[in-house]
Design a protein around this nucleic acid. Structure first.
Lengths: 298, 298
DNA sequence: ACAAAAGTGTTCGTCTTACACCCATGC
DNA sequence: GCATGGGTGTAAGACGAACACTTTTGT
């Protein structure tokens, strides 16, 4: 059995969340940075940090274990391949030459709702899911399928839940909408592929990160020491894929004690913006400190 | 490298959450049910279900991957041991002869706050942590330690956070309060040990389950088809280790649409209680359906 | 009648959302 | 002056916490 560590390294630049990939040999699709455990790695996390520096030149900050993938279909025919996936967050983005940042929303175009619901959903995804529901052999199976489609894609009156990235990916995968090859290519959702099941792994990371935002102050791992509230808001919007209500967002983060003003300002297009910093003390005061999501309708 | 699957199988009987263990050879401490991957296991989860039936005779319902443990200190000197841990929930409790249920709160006596804060905390844990804070070599290290102790054990004005089970376990472990051997035995917290780092694995499960309660309807995996609201409340109290406010709890679960009355009643010591069932439709209506925690002071 | 347990009404404060508006800078 | 983006006031509503109280059974 082969065991690897796979790293989902996330950064956000210009309001685009990105994941780091390394280019595979000629003509093939990109893949995640991957390494193997060595005897002298005391912990899994240490091993991850070690090979990420080796392979990408990046010294990552926040690191968290995501999930271990080991289904036999991952490596059809061959030896079983076990991948322990990690999520890592970095502030800046200057990896070595053979690494490249890939935009999350090129991998999952249906996930970016910042300018309203992406057209792929009503135009291609929803009709295909409807057909898939109709193809069910029995009535209970039909209603299970319908519920699943509605819940994961926010159809039929169910609210969109940004966290269900993996469930959406898996549903599209099962219904053939991500088929990269041959026959159904024309009906597939236009999106970027990664090697093997790496796109599934990144989907797991994205969902986890969206969830964690709301109850742990992880956003600040992606920001510099000081920032304006607009920068913070745009970052949260980029990650969550949703537009937020500005006046309320400001009050929420200040009111929750997540940030404090530094007293300095930064120039902008209009009135200069006050600079803030993360208030570490917030973890003493609140049980679940994070950035909530005061939605604004697209 | 050795790879195993470890199962944390949880059931609740008589308001005591329990985890299933199998007895190790003569005189040694109990361990979690453990199995290895076989070539014909298509998925990790399927492998888990297979060996759990083999080893304990239980057919588990809800299953979720927890975490993968692989630090080299787990198997000092030997080959690296990788454990992929799973959480499983079962309704009833009739395992095969060589398996036994162990009470969560015998493993972690400081976690049960249903009758107020357990005396071990003020009497033994808090003073030891204070000493540990004092032993820090530098001022910043000292304040990091203090913050950590306060946040994870709810000291110094910080609120107790039931979810931080693993963080508490690891802090006690680091400060020697769980020492089973030799010298500091008398100063150690009286609690049950498991083989190897299995108690750490169970702590991970407990924390995950407590967290998940609040945003996914997992409690119902531990209940029968119908139940009274008091049964539901006592179950949630057992898992969360906290006492809840009855009138509000009732309104919350009904108001959230989590349950619906069946129209039937069950006899009790006093007035008969209405029986309820889980409303599956709640997942269509609410983004994060779960049982909140309307605390009541000890 | 009384104990025991289930179940209801209502109030109060906080957190969330929405709408309307004012402020400071560059050109 | 006016465009641009930063920032505030305030009121309505949802939600949770707390308190006091009523109802239905068994003995």
């Amino acid at each position: 059995m082969h065991v690897t560590l796979d790293a989902v390294i996330v950064a956000v630049t210009d309001d685009r969340p990105k994941v780091l990939t390394v280019s595979a040999p000629a003509g093939s699709v990109p893949r995640l940075p991957t390494g193997v455990l060595r005897e002298d790695d005391r912990t899994l996390e240490a091993a991850l940090r070690r090979f990420v520096v080796d392979e990408t030149g990046l010294d990552v900050g926040y690191v968290e274990q995501l999930y271990t993938f080991g289904d036999s279909e991952r490596q059809p025919g061959g030896e079983r391949l076990l991948s322990i996936a990690y999520l890592a967050l970095v502030r800046e983005a200057a990896p070595s030459a053979d690494a490249a940042w890939v935009d999350w929303y090129d991998l999952y175009p249906w996930e970016d709702h910042r300018s309203g619901r992406p057209p792929v959903i009503p135009e291609l995804i929803a009709p295909t899911l409807d057909a898939w529901v109709g193809e069910a052999r029995s009535a209970p199976e039909r209603s299970r399928r319908e519920e699943r489609a509605h819940v994961v894609f926010g159809l039929g009156g169910v609210a969109w839940d940004g966290v269900r990235v993996l469930e959406r990916f898996e549903l599209l995968y099962e219904t053939g909408l991500l088929e990269e090859s041959t026959a159904r290519r024309s009906e597939a959702v236009r999106s970027l592929a990664l090697q093997g099941d790496h796109r599934r792994i990144v989907a797991t990371a994205l969902g986890r990160l969206r969830g964690k935002l709301t109850y742990r102050p992880v956003v600040f791992e992606l920001l510099g020491e000081t920032f304006t509230l607009s920068q913070l808001q745009e970052l949260v919007e980029a990650l969550s894929g949703a537009r937020l209500h500005k006046p309320n967002f400001r009050r929420l983060v200040e009111g929750a004690g997540l940030v404090e003003a530094t007293g300095t300002t930064a120039p902008t297009g209009g009135r200069p913006a006050a600079l803030y910093r993360f208030r570490r003390d917030v973890v003493r005061e609140r049980p679940r400190p994070g950035v909530g999501t005061p939605w604004t309708r697209g």
